[in-house]
Structure formats: C-alpha cells, structure tokens
C-alpha cells in the first residue's frame, strides 16, 4: 500500500471537486472493499477523501411516496429500517443475504453499489486481468470461472458484479443521485448505472471523474410478494452463485433480476411478460444470449430452478 494523504470531506460538492482536482484521489466511506483491495495493491490511491462526516446517513420519505436513502446509510440500518422492511422487503432481504454482520455495520449504500468483482484473477496482481490492468488479457476465460459471468461478459472480461443489494435495487427501479465536480447533480437510473465490460472492463459505472453518489431513491412501493433467493455453497458469508430478486404480483406478473450471473444486476424488462408462463420460459428469454463457460454452465440451470422455487414461494406453495 502506497502512502496516501487524507482529508475529511466537508460537503458533497466540495468532496467531488477535490476528487476531480487531486491526482489519484479516491473516496472512502465504509472502506470494506477499498481497503481490502489497497492491501493487495489492486487499488493504489494517493489521496483519500473520507466521506463519513457528511450528513448523508438518513432515510427519508420522498414526496411521491418513495424513499430517499442517503449514500452513507449503513447496510445494517437500511436493512433494519421499518419502512424498508414493510414496503421494500426485497431490499432488506438482499442486504441481509450479503457479507457478515460486521461488514454490514460498516458498508454503505453507495459503496455497496461500487463493490468491485470478486474474480480471483482480479484479486491477484501477478495474473493477467483487463479490469485491473487494461491490455493484460483475461486469465479467467479458460481458467477458474465457476463463479463468473454467464451473460453480459465479453472477450475481455467475464467478471461478476458481486453486490446483492444492487440486484434488489435493479428490481425496485432505484435511481442513483450524484453530485459532479462542477457541483451539478444528476439522477442515474440503476439500469444505466453499471456498464457492461465490452473492450473496457476497467470502466464499471457511468460515474465521471470526481462524481460522488449522494443517495439512492426508491419509487413508491409496488406491492407484491418480495423475494430474494440467494444460492451459495456455504450457508452464509459467501457470494452468490446465483441470486434471484423478484417482486411477484397476485396475477403472476412481476419483475425479476438475477445476481451472480453477469457484470451487472441482470434484468430484462422485455422478458418479464413471460414470467406468468413460468420459470423455464421466462429464464429462456432472460438468459437467451448466455455464453457460459464449461465451469459455470450450471448457473443457467440453477437460475431457472431457483426462479422456479421463487415463483412457487410467491404462490404460497412452500414445496
């Protein structure tokens, strides 16, 4: 870890301006992913801007009946919020399925959206990885890829976005709010927030240099049955092999996004009209363009079977 200077941010706009101005600057809030990566040399900031003093840690009702979640709201507090538990159970469930109690106490809403992949080649600075070192190649393709993407990847990268929370937010049509270095704010629909890797896997979001997430808004609740079903080898404290985030209405219609299968939460609104026809048909549409590796082809089957269980649960059929 290289030496870095450190400052405590005084306002979101000032933090954004400082980040754009200062070479090698990075924001730090929870730090649970950034410090992990700094210790192994994957991230090498020269300057850290500590956001923790900013008053971005509240959850407030919006005028249109939704919720605005401050960027610094900790995962634990978001999951435990009574309004979230009542109206956005999916989000609470997704958060609680992730990481550990200790990590959720630190990790923030914005930081969770910006979590970097757990691809083992990304994590090892001795190995080729286009995301970490653009132009070095992808060792995961043809290598250990059991945990990696089956869809949305490219010849350059098949990394998976590891956040559970983001998958739920994708289903909830969340909007990411930011402030840019010039002080302008913008609202980015979650669908547009994460980029697919293409030829530039190191660019993971649409955020600009210095741009700071200030919060996430959720539209007003849509009702329905909220289910987050995370599948993993270990019973807890593990990343998803596949996760299904779903809101299913009484008539069988609904919304579904998958985690663990793609470089971003994987949802296709065009496939959703097929949801009432069941898991098999819906998944065939949602994952029609899947290009799994030999090691992770099981994820396509697993996604369908998990969704089958989710739809059964939504119907109140526990078995």
């Amino acid at each position: 870890m290289k030496p870095f200077s450190y400052e405590r941010a005084t306002s979101p706009a000032a933090a954004a301006a400082a980040a754009a101005r200062t070479e090698g600057a990075k924001f730090i809030a929870g730090g649970t992913n950034l410090l992990d990566l700094m210790k192994i040399g994957v991230e090498e900031p020269m300057h850290l801007i500590d956001l923790n003093g900013l008053a971005l840690d509240t959850i407030e009702a919006t005028s249109d009946g939704g919720l605005r979640i401050g960027a610094l709201v900790r995962n634990t507090d978001l999951a435990a919020d009574q309004r979230v538990r009542r109206d956005y159970g999916l989000l609470s469930r997704a958060l609680l399925a992730g990481a550990s109690g200790q990590l959720r106490n630190k990790a923030t809403t914005a930081g969770n959206l910006l979590q970097r992949t757990r691809c083992p080649y990304f994590y090892d600075t001795n190995q080729p990885c286009n995301k970490r070192l653009p132009g070095s190649g992808c060792a995961a393709i043809g290598g250990s890829s059991r945990s990696l993407a089956v869809i949305g990847g490219s010849a350059s990268c098949i990394a998976v976005q590891p956040s559970d929370m983001a998958v739920a937010m994708r289903v909830l049509d969340a909007v990411v709010e930011t402030v840019r270095a010039d002080g302008q704010t913008r609202r980015i629909p979650i669908a547009d927030f994460h980029r697919l890797p293409g030829a530039r896997p190191h660019v993971e979001t649409v955020l600009e240099r210095g741009e700071l997430i200030t919060g996430v808004t959720l539209p007003k609740p849509v009702g329905g049955m909220h289910i987050y079903h995370k599948v993993r080898d270990r019973a807890s404290y593990a990343f998803a092999l596949v996760s299904v985030a779903a809101i299913v209405q009484k008539d069988g219609s609904g919304r579904v996004a998958l985690g663990g299968v793609a470089p971003k939460p994987w949802r296709d609104e065009a496939a959703e009209p097929y949801l009432p026809q069941g898991a098999k048909i819906f998944t065939a549409h949602l994952l029609a363009n899947a290009t799994p590796t030999g090691e992770n082809a099981f994820k396509v089957v697993l996604a369908e079977r998990t969704l089958h269980a989710v739809l059964a649960e939504a119907k109140g059929d526990a078995s």
């Binding site: 757990r118 083992p120 290598g143 270990r234 019973a235 807890s236 404290y237 593990a238 990343f239």
Partner: peptide, 21 residues
Amino acid sequence: DKRLGFFVNHDLAGYEVPVHA
C-alpha cells in the same frame, strides 16, 4: 489453474471453510 500453475482461490473468501450457519 492448470495453465498458470497456482491455487487460484488463495484467500478465505475464495477458499470457503464452514461458518456457524
């Protein structure tokens, strides 16, 4: 990794051991 010659999952997130649950 039979090409690159190493144990790929070389941390406690990648090499899973049982947890309480």
